[in-house]
Each structure stands twice: as C-alpha cells, then as structure tokens.
Write a protein that binds this DNA or RNA. Structure first.
Length: 309
DNA sequence: GGGCAGGTCTAAG
DNA sequence: CTTAGACCTGCC
C-alpha cells in the first residue's frame, strides 16, 4: 500500500528515463575513448545547452538532435542517436584528436599548465554549429551563465524546431534574420537583441550557411575567421575568439575574458589590462593549440574560485 | 539600492 | 589609438 507507492515512486524517478533510453532508443557506442570527461567538457564554458540528467550522464540538443550521453570506463554512449550520425557525433566530441599529446605538449616546461590540466584532464573542444555559436556568444557578453542558458533556451522554444518532449532545436538563420527589432522583447535579451537581429540579417545577406561553410574551410585560418567575425555589430574581440574556437574550431584562438585575465595575472604575472601581452605569450608558449590551453586555464581558475555558475 | 556578470559600442582625449 | 561610461536584465 503506502510502501509500494513509495517504492514505485523511487523506481520510476530513478530508472525510468534511463531504462527507456537504453531499451527502446537507438544507441551509438564509442569505445576506448581517453582524455574525456563529460562534466569537464560541458562545464568549461564552451557550450550552453547541456545539463546533467543522471550520474555520468548529460542531455542536450545539438544539430537538431536531442540525445543523452553517458561516459563510463572509456566508453561513450549516445542514447537517441542513429548509426548514420556516427561521424557527426565523433566530430562534435572531437574524438579523433589526440588530446594526450596536446596536453603533454602545452604543459612541457610549464608547471602552471600542468596543474591546470590536472584539474580538468578530460576537457575537449566541442565542434559546435557555427551559427549557434555566433548567436550564443553574442548573448554571453556581459552576462551570467544561468541567464545565458535560459535566454538561449527561450530562443529555441520560441523559434526552434519542435523535437518533441519539450526539446527544441536552435533556430535557423532565416528565422532570426526575418525578425524585426522588438520581436524578441519577451526574451529579455536587453541590448543584445539588436545585435542578434543585425547579425542574423547580415549573415543571411552574405549567403547564410554557405557563408559560414566558407569560414569553416581551411583557407580561412584563425586570423581570417576572426577578422570576418569582428565586423558584426555586437561581436568584439572576446566573443569573436570564442566563436572562432568553439564554432569554427580554430584552435589557435585564445579568448580572454575576466577569468582569463585573473588567471593570467595570478599564474603568469600579467597586468589585467595587458591583453596584448597575454595573447603574445599564449601564441609563443602554447602555439597552435592555445585554444585548448585557454580552456584548461579557464576551468582551473573557475575551480579555484569554487564555483561553476 | 549599488554592484556585478564570460563585453561591446561610442564618444572623447 | 587608448580610455571612460553607458547599457538590458536578474540576482545578491
């Protein structure tokens, strides 16, 4: 009677979701994955649409697909993903890159970096949708993470494709480009609304996805990509570097935000105003993988501060 | 109520 | 070319 009801409650809440996914939904498995940690990947500040849903498990939407991901014993499982999307997810999680090698390289002769990596050895740079990265990081400026996340979620709910069960894709370029100032008032984006609409219209006029694909190509290196991005109203140096790194996988981008200023001051003695000095140092010491170095330092500083929000 | 949060824009010096 | 202020909003 009462006890059964209670037990049922426990079981339903603890296992139903997981059970359902493991039993009835397509599952994609990647074995022998090293240098990988979901919490570190999703909480190191590069993305905004993933949340923990169980032990060793996160759920989220990327590329119009809702999935749950689980990582245990070097085995990455993606529940709700089709076999046809194996390459898409391998690319998204950057599984073919040797992070062990990169970590060794950027921390050789650098005790600070070695310590930072020790804190977040499973960090990886996600290969996110460039368009989503552009809008998300415009929203991120002078903002806090809970509000960034809720703003993006609301944007998806209002203008993204309905994926069922309360999940929504990120809205496409045309949808946001066809909006006018004021249409997003409900979302409380503040002055970022104008930036978003301006940028969407401009990207559409430049060729939309084919324009972004062009920047994605190898003939657009970090600097060329950065120079394009920074032309958009609302995209300054920090946001442009984040987009270049997280949306276009230019690993030599080195975004410097308030946390990076603090950590570069604390560990390397730079004045917090000396952005050029920091950038030059990063280029010199961390080379072509300074974007990954940046993630480790950022994560380390946040961890030292004892917060993740 | 003033300050701050993963900055950027704009107008002055 | 470098440097203050203003700026939406929500939370302490």
């Amino acid at each position: 009677m009462y006890i059964f009801g209670y037990l049922n409650y426990i079981i339903v809440n603890a296992f139903s979701k997981e059970q359902r996914n493991q039993d009835r939904v397509n599952t994609l498995i990647f074995n022998n994955i090293r240098d990988f940690d979901l919490e570190q990947i999703f909480e190191c500040g590069q993305c905004f649409r993933w949340k923990a849903c169980a032990d060793n498990m996160y759920e989220g939407v990327a590329f119009d697909r809702y999935v749950q991901v689980e990582y245990i014993d070097h085995r990455l499982a993606i529940y709700g993903a089709d076999e046809a999307d194996r390459e898409l997810w391998a690319s998204y999680f950057d599984l073919d890159r040797d992070y062990g090698y990169i970590k060794a390289k950027i921390s050789s002769d650098d005790e600070n970096m070695a310590k930072a990596i020790e804190k977040g050895p499973g960090i990886r740079i996600l290969k996110q949708d460039p368009w989503e990265a552009i809008i998300s990081f415009i929203i991120s400026q002078n903002n806090n993470i809970p509000r960034i996340k809720s703003s993006i979620e609301k944007l998806c709910q209002c203008y993204g494709k309905d994926l069922g069960e309360g999940h929504y894709a990120f809205p496409d370029i045309d949808t946001l480009a066809d909006l006018n100032e004021g249409d997003l008032d409900q979302l409380k984006l503040g002055y970022r609304q104008a930036y978003i609409i301006h940028t969407a219209k401009k990207i559409k006029s430049l060729g939309a996805y084919s324009y972004l694909d062009k920047l994605l190509g190898d003939d657009y290196d970090y600097e060329a990509c950065y120079n394009e991005l920074i032309q958009f109203k609302g995209i300054g140096p920090k946001v442009a570097n984040c987009i270049a790194l997280f949306g276009f996988n230019k690993f030599d981008a080195f975004p410097i935000d308030v946390w990076m200023k603090r950590v570069m001051n604390k560990l390397y003695g730079f004045e917090e105003s000396d952005l050029e000095g920091m950038s030059a140092y990063a280029k010199e010491h961390f080379g072509e993988y300074r974007g990954i170095a940046q993630q480790h330092l950022f994560y380390y500083m946040r961890a030292l501060d004892g917060e993740h929000n």
